[in-house]
Design a protein around this nucleic acid. Sequence first.
DNA 1: TTTAGCACTCTCCTCTTCTGAGTGCCAACC
DNA 2: GGTTGGCACTCAGAAGAGGAGAGTGCTAAA
Lengths: 358, 358
Amino acid sequence: MELSDRKKKILRAVIDNYIETAEPVGSKAIASGLGLSSATIRNEMAELKTMGYLEQPHTSAGRVPTPIGYRVYVNELMERHRMSVAETETINSGLRARMKQLDSLISDAGRLVSTLTSYPAYSMSSRSQKLTAKRFELVHVDDLTFIAVVILSDNTVKNRLIRLMSPLDENDLKRYSMLFNNSFTDKTEDMITPQLVMAAERVTGDENGVIMTVAGFLIEVLSDVQQTFVTGTSHLLSHPEFQDVDKARRVMNYLSDSGEMMKLPVPDQGKNVKITIGPENLAEELKDSSVVVAKYNVDENMQGLIGVVGPTRMDYSKVAAWLAYVANALGFMLSRNDTQFPGIGGRTDNDSIDNKED
Amino acid sequence: MELSDRKKKILRAVIDNYIETAEPVGSKAIASGLGLSSATIRNEMAELKTMGYLEQPHTSAGRVPTPIGYRVYVNELMERHRMSVAETETINSGLRARMKQLDSLISDAGRLVSTLTSYPAYSMSSRSQKLTAKRFELVHVDDLTFIAVVILSDNTVKNRLIRLMSPLDENDLKRYSMLFNNSFTDKTEDMITPQLVMAAERVTGDENGVIMTVAGFLIEVLSDVQQTFVTGTSHLLSHPEFQDVDKARRVMNYLSDSGEMMKLPVPDQGKNVKITIGPENLAEELKDSSVVVAKYNVDENMQGLIGVVGPTRMDYSKVAAWLAYVANALGFMLSRNDTQFPGIGGRTDNDSIDNKED
DNA sequence: TTTAGCACTCTCCTCTTCTGAGTGCCAACC
DNA sequence: GGTTGGCACTCAGAAGAGGAGAGTGCTAAA
């Protein structure tokens, strides 16, 4: 059951119009734009309705796209959004202004996307287990306290304040510091065995449990495989489809409850962007929202997602383009280990968008 | 115009009841509890109404407390909430579970409070200018890149990835590192003058701008006087007074827009907790919400606030007690520089609550 | 001073009516 | 045969009317 060219045009006009107005669109509204009479449009619309692409809130209302309609729109009908210079500049300046520490890059990017799109954004990164420590510093605070600073192989920095039972002077700390730099760097989480820790303890005659404690901290940060951030949930409230508080709350709670993040969509192999529409979402709470998510690759061992959640009536084209751009920039910054992002003027088209559902 | 004992009892009963049910309370509802007939209560209520402590949504509805009524309640009527063992244990375990790095202590505390109270929470800390650097580490990434790690006098750790124009080897980096540890530690922001930077540049013959860049980064973190975090705004939606999306959105936007934080209340000199009710709030957006905020002191040079925002119908007593407890713990952890919090079992009463409005 | 009683008020619910946007379908037209 | 104007029809939503019930204010009696 293939759509005629005219049907496609009409479907597209309906969706474009609906995205803009959030009101069911009547035949008159689009008749002028297509050079056809409203009666003709009505006939076509009726067929589109029986084919499942459009629906009516009630008999004598205008038409509203169904998720299937959106799907077709996203897959073949919508104009690829070509980003304007102003848009890229907005994003670039946002990136420059916010991205300061690698550690917070991922959450900052989410914040930026949420501000730009006016939808809630989520961002997460995950890595296969291969993170290692690259450098340790143990910084003296007082004789019972020091800070363990560890610089990881991805150039993020973690620290923990550690208190001891019995005192330790700065020289002791230097010794431990050297020990860690010698024995615990370049080791993945599973290489930090009790044997290794015990061996180190034997060498230093550690009575304070310093090694145990720091090693514990190290294992903790190395195994921290995944980070998730959600921002801007309150943006939902400004969209007419979330005027129902209960509906809004369900989605917002779902997003805040980051344990549930697992059910959010992920672009398929070889694709960078995925759009899931309404019931295509696995999570019950998102069955009448849409998700647009972009993937960024840092290296073979780390990748991440950045996405937004919004009503099914979403400007898919623009959101997808923006997300792809930000994801690209993020991958660039993370793999170069560089928070300076010069802008990637040339590549503003989003050719690799994966907008097929499966 | 002093309230009779009986009027106080009635006012208290009305407010207690209203806090619980969120419905206007009628005379019958509280008559039984006070051993008086509903008619008597009605007469008293009518007077409380003319006195401004109660109001009616409409002529034949029950009574609802006015902000002035809440004020009296908070100042003299409400029972001081004595925290149960279970409650302190809930908080303590929350503290233990989340508070891991000093850097994130403040935001983590906000998150905890929001979860505990089911209200949006905000937390902020500010210090007078006296922060200094305590230790520098410049960590080699590649010849064009290094990470500047600086440990500050409050034992938080900041880092920044820095790229250079021309290469620098590990030995150079060590030299710079020493230089910074010699010349830039224990200096407040205003002591880092262009002269100082230039002098340092002269010593090392720095052509890479390393000193300039790191000094800039240092000034940036030292002058980062204030941090603000808001979490859990979506909790608002579960309260009946925020079923109106517009109302909820106004408050949520206000809170997300952290630039506006300045208008949030602060406990008065010598007091630890402040409660502002409805129109007592300076911010227009909060004129019909209430804020409970607790102060914590770390040392003479740093203090912070942690507070929640909710409907005027709030369980002031409980919220104030919890906030005071968390603030206390936070001050304790920050001044001992210790993220281990053993629990402060003894001091569970909140004697120093400042519930007077001015 | 307290209480019982009663008329009264006002919200909320339901039911009805009305209006207008938009449809579906038919007959005429190109 | 596809396209169009015309017209009867439908239905949501607004506006209005009536009824029920909760709770009041006031008065008169205890």
